[in-house]
Design a protein around this nucleic acid. Structure first.
Length: 946
RNA sequence: GGGCCUGUAGCUCAGGUGGCUAGAGCGCGCCCCUGAUAAGGGCGAGGUCGACUGUUCAAGUCAGUCCAGGCCCA
């Protein structure tokens, strides 16, 4: 008589309370709160107190309302570096920082004041700026933390902190003391109605009607270089023709610029004069000026004219202007010759520097000429325009005029047109003490990721002009420069000046604005001339000098230089360069050993993301919709060395990938219910061969992932892990394992072997995934049985090692399994054919009849008993074949319907179903399993298993 | 316009020093399962390797030109 039995109750189905649905947007904040309450970051550092250091120095973002996706990507990458280094056994602190000073906040405060900046004292103005910065920093900090980034958030570094401001000022003094700093001229945007310098960002372009004039400059026929004048021009009335829309710059004209490669024609006009213009523009110039030209006397390349040392007479001043070369000269309009006023144009200034021509800018703050001819002296530049045109006319130099409407820079505050004006600025001399050469040397010693970074930065450093470090602003660190009130000399007692640093340490840089020079200096300080009264410099430092100094302020206690800097590609021009120069100027070396750059953040069409373009997506929105782990998955899914893209379809796809990973973890956890590694794990020698082989494969994966983490190749880690989850585990190993896990007696050694492997594999994968999926990994970790001594947070754990996965399985057997995997692929195709032909439905309904020869036959015979489980079919027969198939292929596989009846318990077909009178519906294997289960039914074991 | 970089299936990624019919996963199509179930499994169709011209017995891989895009300058 058959025993009554609930078959399903004898099956070991997965059981876990690890939820299938992630609900990341809801759960992640809870996890964050828990980490914060547990002081996870501090505990990690404490647990690594004796470990070797690995320092990533955070490039400080500028505090703004919402963080941009690119900023999110950057922070996530930094977090992955820190977490992976921590798990590799390093002590890797992360001190986030903010770049607090500078124009954007200053502008906001100005707006708040309704443009009446002068209505408050500098100290009060600075207080308001500070308030703004604090507000934004708090907001940013929330966003960054939400991404799962662990670090010293409660005490970040701020460039506006007193101690930090002191370090910046000190670095400046070091530069000054070592002789790098000099005062020079540089043209800047200048608003003559507000009497102030404007930053690039403070000018807006609007249409403006300017005079448009053609002016002729007469070639000097005498002088020391007269011999080199080309023969065709000798002794003639030759004129260089220029075109300009700013007649008022003519008094400051110092040179005529030619393009080195353009062809210039010397054409004789109806008046008998010879005019020099770009050959291509000959006709248009003649048309605009209303003269007739005959055929050209000669043509010259611009470079020839410069080589001939041509000089031209200024139309109304006693000045000779040399022909110079400039590659910004264009043929789009004008004459191909550009009158060059180094005091009133950025391009002109550079050309002037190159040729050692003076920077002449005879204007006061109101834009009035302080010297020159009576016709325009004392007038503002805009008043002077028509006067100078008239003057040119009266001197016979004006050969054409009109009006031109064009886009012209205007002041954002008063909306009046602005001018370029040379002003006194402070510079760091790149040649002093071979600063440039030293920098280029240091660049070579740094490891660049990607490698082309070296070339890129070298190119920039080699070409860059001297560093202008002064700004006419308030919200920043002042240049510690003082002048004697009596003799006017710059005060250069650096020991005394460093007293200011002490003030800054106590009160911050505000001290500069609230105390007199005499208070800031040590009591009794005197100038060489004997005077004790000093005047403070008003300028503040370029914020790039500040951010360039952050490593000095942040990396204490043997942390300097940093192991790595990691930023976007815009920082070659910015932080990488400023940090390098400050590092060399103060400590004679680069502040970083390695520099990693990631790409720019683009939308689906490859356009850069920005709020103004309307294609920007905020990290906070992504966290709300998808979760931070999804954003982190996005970050790792792509190769960051190129630009990275963001689109909704990508996120949908990643969400699917995430779901797969999560479910696979969940399956593993479900099958580890009641599994206690300390009690139930099977020794290596007792492992089923397939399990040992899978452990081996896991070991290979571990080795690869660790190497990739080492090289910061996160996307390779992601793709390898993901493929392992999908292909090796979900589609293969776990699928094959179901039969053993579900139908074998719970404590059967073969089932324990499977669980041992699942446990070890899962424990490894969750740790490898932890730097990427910081929340999900923690969730898995908490559900995973933990060995004694393992930390309660996955982020405190160490990465697995490949050695953890050596089981002693010999090489030949490993290869056997690789071959069997190939056989499996072959069999699956045949099974699919049989399914379409309706021979079978499920694989378990099949019997495979294989024919093979040689080594393959031998292999299949040796593993005959494992084949049905490996292929998830009910029966497999192996017969010798006549022909021998190519490398490891089975010659033939035939699929037939399985023999016997379907076992109601394990769903395998067997001819033995019904043989056991007690359980007529089950097969011989299940009969044995039930006997094993019943044999072990003693209450003590039972309770231990529940 | 200049410097540097990027361009392999719909998407993301592999393809040392040139050498078999260019690979993977996802997505897609078709099918199976219902004991991972708002899961799981299988098979299949997708690529002129941005374009062109060279070097070579042989090029996704080397060289040149061009096109598209990015960062930074101008």
């Amino acid at each position: 008589m058959a025993k009554p039995l609930d078959l399903k109750s004898t099956i070991n189905l997965p059981r876990t309370d690890f939820p299938m649905k992630a609900q990341l947007p809801q759960r992640e904040p809870q996890q964050l709160a828990q980490w914060e309450a547990e002081k996870l970051y501090q505990r990690i550092l404490e647990s690594r107190a004796q470990a070797p250091l690995f320092v990533l120095h955070d490039g400080p973002p500028y505090p703004t309302g919402d963080i941009h996706l690119g900023t999110g990507l950057n922070k996530i990458m930094k977090d992955m570096v820190v977490k992976s280094k921590t798990m590799a056994g390093f002590r890797s602190p992360y001190i986030p920082g903010w770049d607090c000073h500078g124009l954007p906040i200053e502008s906001k405060v100005e707006k708040q004041l309704g443009g009446k900046k002068d209505s408050v004292a500098p100290a009060e103005f600075r207080r308001m700026c500070r308030e703004f910065a604090v507000k934004y920093i708090d907001q940013n900090r929330r966003d960054f933390k939400r991404l799962g980034v662990l670090g010293r958030w409660e005490k970040p570094y701020l460039t506006m902190d007193p101690e930090h401001e002191a370090t910046i000022a000190d670095a400046f003094l070091t530069f000054m003391e070592k002789g790098y700093v000099y005062k020079g001229l540089k043209p800047v945007y200048w608003c003559i109605s507000d009497r102030t310098a404007l930053a690039e960002a403070e000018v807006e372009y609007a249409d403006h009607t300017s005079p448009s004039i053609y002016v002729r400059f007469k070639l000097a026929q005498d002088g020391p270089d007269a011999n080199s004048i080309p023969a065709a021009l000798k002794g003639k009335n030759v004129y260089g023709i220029i075109w300009t829309t700013t007649p008022w710059t003519i008094p400051a004209s110092m040179a005529l610029a030619f393009h080195p490669d353009f062809v210039y024609a010397a054409v004789e006009t109806d008046s008998g004069d010879v005019y020099l213009v770009a050959d291509q523009l000959r006709k248009s110039v003649a048309g605009a000026c209303g003269y007739k030209e005959s055929k050209p006397l000669a043509t010259y390349k611009g470079s020839e004219l410069e080589a001939a040392h041509l000089k031209f007479h200024h139309p109304f001043l006693d000045r000779l202007e040399p022909a110079v070369l400039a590659d910004y000269v264009t043929l789009e309009q004008g004459t191909g010759i550009v009158h060059t006023a180094p005091g009133h144009g950025a391009d002109d200034f550079r050309t002037g520097q190159k040729y050692g021509i003076g920077t002449y800018a005879p204007l006061d703050d109101d834009g009035r000429f302080v010297e020159g001819l009576p016709e325009y002296k004392g007038k503002t530049v805009f008043e002077a325009n028509p006067l100078i045109v008239k003057l040119l006319e009266s001197r016979g130099a004006l050969i054409g005029q009109g009006k031109l409407q064009h886009s012209y820079p205007h002041c954002w505050r008063c909306h009046n047109p602005v001018i370029f004006r040379a002003t006194e600025q402070w510079f760091i001399n790149l040649e002093h003490d071979h600063l440039r050469r030293h920098a280029l040397n240091e660049i070579r010693k740094v490891k660049w990721t990607p490698e082309w970074g070296e070339q890129r930065l070298s190119g920039m450093v080699a070409e860059r002009p001297d560093w202008c470090i002064s700004r006419q602003r308030f919200w920043g660190v002042p240049l510690i420069v003082m002048y004697c009130e009596q003799c006017g000399e710059q005060f250069k007692d650096f020991q005394a000046l460093r007293n200011v640093i002490r003030w800054f340490e106590r009160e911050g840089a505000d001290a500069w604005f609230t105390h007199s020079a005499e208070e800031l200096l040590p009591p009794g300080t005197k100038c060489k001339c004997g005077s004790a009264r000093f005047r403070k410099e008003k300028d503040i430092l370029d914020v790039w000098f500040e951010s360039g100094s952050t490593s000095l302020a942040v990396l204490k206690d043997g942390m300097w230089p940093a192991d790595v800097y990691l930023e976007g590609p815009d920082q070659y021009r910015g932080w990488f360069q400023s940090s390098l120069l400050v590092g060399i100027g103060t400590r004679d070396r680069a502040p970083y050993k390695q520099v990693v750059t990631h790409g720019w953040t683009l939308d689906a069409e490859g356009r850069p993301m920005s709020k103004s373009a309307g294609n920007g997506v905020l990290p906070s929105e992504i966290c709300e919709k998808w979760g931070a782990d999804l954003l982190r998955l996005w970050t790792t899914s792509q190769d960051y060395q190129a630009d990275v893209r963001f689109s909704e379809p990508m996120m949908t796809q990643l969400a699917e990938s995430y779901r797969k990973i999560r479910n696979t973890f969940r399956f593993a956890l479900g099958n580890l219910a009641n599994f206690d590694p300390a009690r139930d794990a099977v020794a290596d020698s007792e492992l089923s061969e397939m399990d040992a082989w899978m452990l081996h494969r896991t070991g290979e994966l571990v080795a690869k992932c660790r190497a990739w983490y080492d090289e910061f190749e996160f996307h390779r880690v992601f793709h390898a892990l993901y493929d392992f989850f999908v292909v090796d585990l979900s589609a293969f190993y776990f699928d094959v394992l179901k039969d053993r896990l579900y139908t074998f007696a719970p404590r059967n050694i073969a089932r324990r072997s499977a669980q041992t492997a699942i446990y070890r594999i899962t424990s490894a994968l969750v740790r490898l995934a932890a730097p990427i999926l910081v929340f999900t990994s923690e969730e898995v970790w908490k559900h995973l049985p933990r060995a004694a001594g393992e930390p309660d947070s996955v982020h405190m754990a160490l990465f697995p090692t490949a050695e953890d996965f050596t089981t002693g399985l010999d090489r030949r057997k490993l290869e056997n399994w690789e071959s069997l995997l190939a056989v499996r692929e072959q069999a699956l195709k045949k099974l699919e054919e049989a399914r379409s032909a309706k021979v079978i439905n499920s694989g378990l309904g099949a019997k495979l009849q294989m024919r093979a020869s040689g080594k393959t036959l031998e292999l299949l015979k040796n593993y005959a008993s494992s084949l049905p489980q490996l292929l998830i079919v009910s029966q497999v027969t192996v017969e010798p074949a006549n022909a021998s198939a190519a490398n490891g292929q089975v010659d033939d596989i035939e699929v037939a319907h399985a023999d016997g009846k379907k076992c109601e318990r394990c769903w395998n077909y067997s001819i033995h179903v019904g043989e056991n009178a007690d359980y007529p519906a089950i097969c011989e294997r299940c009969t044995a399993a039930i006997a094993e289960i019943e044999g072990s039914r003693d209450p003590a074991v039972e309770s231990a298993n529940r």
